[in-house]
Design a protein around this nucleic acid. Structure first.
Length: 570
RNA sequence: GGCUGGGUAGCUCAGUUGGUUAGAGCGCAGGACUCAUAAUCCUGAGGUCGGGAGUUCAAAUCUCCCCCCCGCCA
């Protein structure tokens, strides 16, 4: 049996994510997980909240909470949002877990033993009023190149030049605005990434199953030369820096940098899952302990590609232990809000929790995958959302299910009709069905979600096309047996339409399959010919007419949402 | 500024290694049907494929230059 480990990029803890975050990692990972499960693969789908770092501390402070409490609450909010969107995580962990703390210590130890970690002292901006060292982007000041007054410590947005925080003229804290800052010496652990240059290049070049985008990003970094980087920070919230199980001298007030411990949480969360479910985790992650037959698939936004193709592999490979590294990788562009950025502060865009309050999760799932930002950024508009949902879900699928189940219920007493034999029309339907299923399966395996959605829709449309040609409402007047066969075939199309729909719209698909009386074990991905699959329903078995699958989205709703969520071309 | 990706019908996007009249969905127009959420099915009208030059018997597809948009830059 195929064993497939799936991770989606970890959502950061500071607030519920917007539709773009959902569409770029968590949702496609879920579609893939569902597809592989239906095909009979053993799937482990892992996600977690990424909880450490300065933004978490600042967000907690703004909320008037201590960081731990803040993260506890936000984690539950994000978990609830994930559940609301039917994200089928096997585990939704937390990078602040004890498991991740232990693993992070473990990797730091191994990397140090391999000679890849050393202490270095540098000068950093310290804010006396904020009582903290300021990360690069939290120092602002005047750009030494163009005199812009809003240059950040890492870059000047006006002239685009890369900066060092110490370059800024009249630096001040972006947190408090205080100019009471000074340069202080601080010592950090540096990961000697440059030493891993050849190892990583060989590994990248051996990775065949990556899209060209991922490969080119990784190679670009390698071409520029990997640079050593600090993996600790002057913060209190995070994984403490230990040595031999005790605080490392000089590092008592420091923690590991969030980007060091966050990807390790993929493993940490697996360990959390194993502990909670009385399972083992090393056979998913250690090739010397049973993970050599695992296919590891990562989903992420394109901003994360470099970290997943270079930084995290350095941690894994640098440990000199046989850790599982990524086999396949799917990266997405952004969903934009009417062409611009989603923005909490400017009240532009819809966030996951808000989305669920105005429309069922199936609608969002369908729209976002049918219009996934695969080749470039994709603009979300409420008008487009309404058009797609009404057409694909309400009219094509919903109406198909409704029209034939109602008809069958009225004419055949709510039973799958018996009698009649298939003819040319049915043979044609089987052939078209087989072709579409083949295409659909290929798209899912290739993780091409726009195409997979289009093929799914084509299968739904097949049902309507068949009914229009077969016209059981006419045939029944002269040839009841033939009408029985047509209705039976169409009801089987309802079942197959729902089975392939499960990955995209699990709630609606389940309602249909329940109504048709299809037992759970018969809901697997189709792997037989249409001639067999479209005659599966036991004759004379009972079915019920499902409630309307999807209510249409009305113009008034779109108008109201536009008001509420700041919809306008930017 | 450097780099990635993109600029194809009104809208959202496909177009495999260059090859017959450039495709799909939505929207629009006409027709059919009346089982169904005024749904569905069929047909049709819409494009100098960002601009220019070049290579070629042949370019949306390759080369060069230019313009515009999203994003990334440890």
């Amino acid at each position: 049996m195929n064993r497939i480990l799936i991770t989606s990029a970890l959502p950061y803890i500071n607030g519920v994510k917007h539709l773009g975050n959902l569409a770029g990692s968590m949702l496609p990972a879920d579609i893939y997980a569902r597809f592989e499960r239906l095909r009979g693969s053993e799937v482990l789908y892992i996600c977690a909240t990424d909880e450490h770092g300065t933004p978490a501390e600042l967000a907690a402070e703004a909320a008037g909470q201590d960081v731990k409490t803040y993260c506890d609450e936000q984690h539950e909010l994000q978990r609830a949002a994930g559940t609301g969107f039917a994200l089928s995580y096997d585990w939704f962990g937390r990078s602040s877990s004890t498991q991740n703390h232990q693993l992070t210590q473990h990797f730091a130890q191994k990397l140090e033993a391999e000679g890849l970690i050393e202490e270095r002292t540098s000068r950093q901006v310290y804010s006396i009023d904020d009582k903290r060292f300021l990360p690069d982007r939290y120092v602002q000041g005047i750009c030494p190149h163009c005199d812009s007054e809003k240059a950040r410590g890492d870059q000047c947005d006006d002239c685009g030049r890369l900066l060092d925080p110490t370059d800024l003229i009249d630096p001040y804290s972006a947190i408090s605005g205080s100019k009471n800052v000074e340069l202080r010496d601080t010592t950090h652990l540096f990961l000697k990434q440059a030493a891993m240059q050849d190892t990583i290049r060989n590994w990248v070049e051996a990775s065949v199953d990556w899209p060209s985008l991922a490969r080119s990003i990784a190679l670009k970094w390698l071409d520029e030369g990997l640079q050593d980087r600090a993996i600790t920070r002057d913060l209190s919230w995070g994984v403490p820096v230990l040595k031999d199980g005790k605080p490392r001298p000089g590092f008592e007030d420091k923690v590991f940098y969030v980007w060091f411990d966050a990807p390790i949480e993929y493993i940490g969360a697996t360990s959390e899952w194993a502990e909670a479910n009385d399972k083992t985790w090393e056979d998913w992650w250690r090739t010397d302990k049973g993970a050599d037959d695992v296919t590891y698939v990562q989903f992420m936004g394109k901003d994360n590609v470099a970290f997943h193709t270079v930084s995290f592999p350095i941690t894994l490979l640098g440990s000199a232990e046989p850790w599982k590294t990524v086999d396949r990788l799917k990266a997405f562009n952004w969903v934009t809000w009417y062409g611009g950025k989603f923005s909490t502060s400017q009240n532009r865009g819809i966030f996951m929790d808000q989305a669920l309050r105005i429309a069922p999760s199936d609608m969002w799932r369908w729209y976002l995958m049918a219009n996934a930002p695969e080749s470039s950024d994709a603009a979300f508009t409420l008008e487009q959302f309404q058009a797609v949902v009404n057409s694909d879900l309400a009219n094509v699928l919903g109406n198909f299910v409704n029209r034939i189940t109602k008809f069958a219920n009225a004419k055949f007493d709510g039973q799958i009709p018996d009698g009649g034999t298939i003819g040319e029309l049915e043979q044609k339907l089987f052939a078209e069905f087989d072709a579409q299923i083949t295409a659909l399966s290929a798209h899912h395996q290739a993780m091409d979600y726009r195409k997979a959605a289009a093929a799914t829709r084509a299968i739904w449309a097949l049902g309507n096309e068949y009914l229009a040609e077969a016209a059981p409402w006419t045939v029944i007047k002269t040839d009841p047996d033939k009408a029985a066969m047509i209705v039976r075939t169409a009801l089987n199309m309802v079942v197959m339409s729902a089975i392939v729909a499960q990955v995209f719209i699990p709630d609606a698909a389940t309602r249909v399959l329940d109504a048709m009386g299809v037992p759970k074990e018969n809901r697997n991905w189709p792997n037989q010919a249409g001639s067999v699959l479209l005659d599966k329903l036991p004759r004379r078995s009972q079915f019920t007419v499902p409630e309307l699958l999807f209510a249409k989205i009305e113009d008034e709703q779109v108008a109201e949402w536009s008001q509420r969520f700041g919809a306008s071309p930017s």
